[in-house]
């Protein structure tokens, strides 16, 4: 069965590029562009992996991650946080909140695909 990945990203062209890359890897891709309602969307779709932008409208990626980790169903859900905020303190905060992997923008396509496969256990 194809693994599913949810990309939460508000930049449309990054979303488009990432979607293309992951679909090419034969993954099932869904997208979400807003911080608000994101947790509920994850609850209803139950993806195998979430790629989460840190800076989102209405609710930050960090808050979403904290919400997820507070739920029993998502304590071990792989979350790859993708952000333009690559300072040490941001990375530390994300790790503290329970991120599975922290990647900074701009990323190399090959690198993100490798990491997605690794987090999906492929």
């Amino acid at each position: 069965m194809r693994k599913s990945v949810l990309i939460v990203e508000d930049e449309p062209f990054i979303l488009e590029a990432l979607s293309f890359l992951l679909k090419r890897e034969r993954l099932k891709v869904s997208t979400f562009t807003d911080g608000k309602g994101c947790v509920e969307y994850i609850q209803s779709t139950k993806p195998d992996l979430v790629i989460l932008d840190m800076m989102l409208p209405n609710r930050s990626g960090m808050q979403i991650l904290e919400d997820l980790r507070a739920m029993d169903a998502f304590t071990s859900l792989p979350v790859l946080m993708l952000t333009a905020k690559g300072q040490k303190k941001d990375r530390a905060a994300a790790e503290q909140a329970g991120v599975s992997l922290f990647m900074t923008k701009p990323f190399a396509n090959k690198e993100i695909i490798q990491n997605v496969h690794r987090l999906l256990g492929k």
Binding site: A17, M55, P106, A108, N109
Partner: peptide, 28 residues
Amino acid sequence: MHLMLSNITTIKSTAEILSDDQDITVAL
């Protein structure tokens, strides 16, 4: 700075797709 990094991310990722994927459709 956030905007610039987002722009650069799109450009880099998209350019890599165009460069690496020879089988991409004309429309795409």
